[in-house]
Structure formats: structure tokens, C-alpha cells
Design a protein around this nucleic acid. Structure first.
Lengths: 64, 64
DNA sequence: AAAGAATAGTCCCGATAGGGTATAAAACAG
DNA sequence: CTGTTTTATACCCTATCGGGACTATTCTTT
């Protein structure tokens, strides 16, 4: 599963809009959008701010 | 387990120096050093270039 | 002990990520 | 179909990430 898709899933499951998630995570709205579109150059700390909302964090996993 | 530690582990298991890993992954030596020291602001694409050497990639995991 | 290799710290610079804002498109509701 | 909400795209600007080079420190090995 791709990270971007997972984040969209988590967000929707939580019933949040991109704007709500951005605000709660303390990141910009544009960042959330680019992240959900799979931007590969995102910064880890920002991604982790988002993942933390769902009790998650970035880690190494075996490649699909 | 922290990501930085995991990367150090993988690198050592492969018998590589930071310089060798940096070169093979196509990233700068400084980046590898900061990454292994747990720099939180690293860019995902660069981290993935490193992880790809070991058949891994970044993904969301439940927070420790 | 000294010599060598590996890792850590520091400098400058170019490229770009992220924020903000505005606009456009798409999804959705009434 | 019309108005509303959500998402996508485009612009400028500032902060900073990453690279390279150099030095310093730590760790090995002899």
C-alpha cells in the first residue's frame, strides 16, 4: 500500500477534510495536498506530524 | 526501533561505511550522517534512496 | 605509542520545500 | 440545475535541505 493512499484512508476514516487535518497537524494545507498526491520529496518531520494524529510514524518496511 | 538506528544496523550488517552507502545510494555523505544521527527533517525521497539498497522503503507504522 | 580509517562537526552555496493566497475544478447537497 | 463544500492547480516568497570540501574527533590496528 502506498503511503499517500494510506493517509487518505486514515483521514477519511477519521471524517476529516484536508483543511482540518492540516490545521490539527500543524502543517500547511498545500503540504497535505501534495502529500496525498504522493509527492516523494516531502520532509519526514512534516509527514510525521500528520501521522502522529493517527498514532503512527514513519518507519522502514520491506518494499512491496 | 528508531529509524536512524535501523539504518545504521542495516548498513553495518552489509559491511558498508557511511561513504560507501552514500555513494551507492546516490546521496551525499553529509546526508547519510545526519540521517543516522536522527535528523528529523530529512527528505523522504533521499531516505528512500538509502532504504532501497536494503529492499526497504518508508511507510506508516504504529507509533512505539 | 603512532598511523590509518571511520565518523562527526562546520563552512558556503544553489535548489527547492512549504506556507500563504488566489483561482479553478470537481464532488456533493438541496 | 444551483449553490456549497472539498479538492486541485498556480503564483511568489522565505527558510532550509542537501552537496561538497575541509577540519576535528573518535576508533582500530599495528
Amino acid at each position: 500500500m502506498e503511503l499517500a493512499k494510506e493517509i487518505i484512508e486514515m483521514r477519511k476514516s477519521a471524517g476529516l477534510t484536508q483543511a482540518e487535518m492540516a490545521e490539527r497537524a500543524g502543517v500547511g494545507l498545500r503540504f497535505v495536498r501534495e502529500l496525498e498526491q504522493g509527492k516523494p520529496t516531502a520532509r519526514m518531520d512534516k509527514v510525521n506530524q500528520v501521522l502522529a494524529m493517527f498514532g503512527c510514524e514513519l518507519g522502514a518496511r520491506t518494499k512491496s
